[in-house]
Design a protein around this nucleic acid. Sequence first.
DNA 1: ACCCAGATTTAGACCTAGTCCAAATTCAGA
DNA 2: TCTGAATTTGGACTAGGTCTAAATCTGGGT
Lengths: 138, 138
Amino acid sequence: MSDLLERLRDRGWRLTAQRRVVAEVLNGEHVHLTADEVHARAGRLLPEISRATVYNTLGELVALGEVIEVTTDGRAKRYDPNARKAHHHLVCTRCLTIRDVPAGAGDGTLPEDDRFGFAISGVEITYRGLCPDCQSGA
Amino acid sequence: MSDLLERLRDRGWRLTAQRRVVAEVLNGEHVHLTADEVHARAGRLLPEISRATVYNTLGELVALGEVIEVTTDGRAKRYDPNARKAHHHLVCTRCLTIRDVPAGAGDGTLPEDDRFGFAISGVEITYRGLCPDCQSGA
DNA sequence: ACCCAGATTTAGACCTAGTCCAAATTCAGA
DNA sequence: TCTGAATTTGGACTAGGTCTAAATCTGGGT
Ligand SMILES: [Mn+2]
Ligand SMILES: [Mn+2]
Ligand SMILES: [Zn+2]
Ligand SMILES: [Zn+2]
């Protein structure tokens, strides 16, 4: 059982069967599923779950700060349960696999001269490249 | 007239009225328009231009490497004529203004240990913050 | 145990961004 | 000028996502 579920219970979130399976599906490392992928996997555990509920629940998890939305391409948003530690993404240009990479100390430091007077509050970095499998013609 | 148009002519691109106005609209610095914005502005210069042609032309410009697609949110892609010099983006979290910031020397250097064996070929950085206007309650 | 107001879920209509297609138009070269 | 290829066009279609109003579930009060 995920400690995501525990944290949610502690925060007084009403734990319904639907919310439970969505949280269940979003467990693990390097997990970056689209809403439809979440819906498909949740549906295996609770066949009657609706698409609307998946969207509702994902939206709530994002609002609670327990899940982050990631858009590494112009396609569907991906939902990422690794919201506790700041990190960036490494995306394979061929198979589209996504890996989490830890945020570095110097990230988000933009030289004063390049800031246009902005007060910078965050930074997202997407590295692109070929994953080991795709390099070896797999 | 833009030197974008000149480069395109040199490369043997058939210069139709439609392509000309699309290229015209994509002139300037810090330009990051959606396809629909391009269509609206192009339509002021050439009222009968169709949405399909705008999409076609933008796609061709991207394929030619003269324009890049930018997705700083999960919404519509934005088209950026600043394709000659590598740069990143600074996005206002309130008014969504986008500014170009020059790429730094150390960008895209990910510690060997964090690379998961990927062969990294590119990096995109999005800085988020409040622009000067939005800071001063404007 | 039973009730009920509020929370949650649901199907499906609706919306935005984008793609695709077949027919109409335009154009460059012979 | 003619002609085949390139280009443009309107509209149908798709993917991803939002919204709504009605149905269902829930837990605290009795
Ligand atoms: Mn991640
Ligand atoms: Mn730019
Ligand atoms: Zn790969
Ligand atoms: Zn602003």
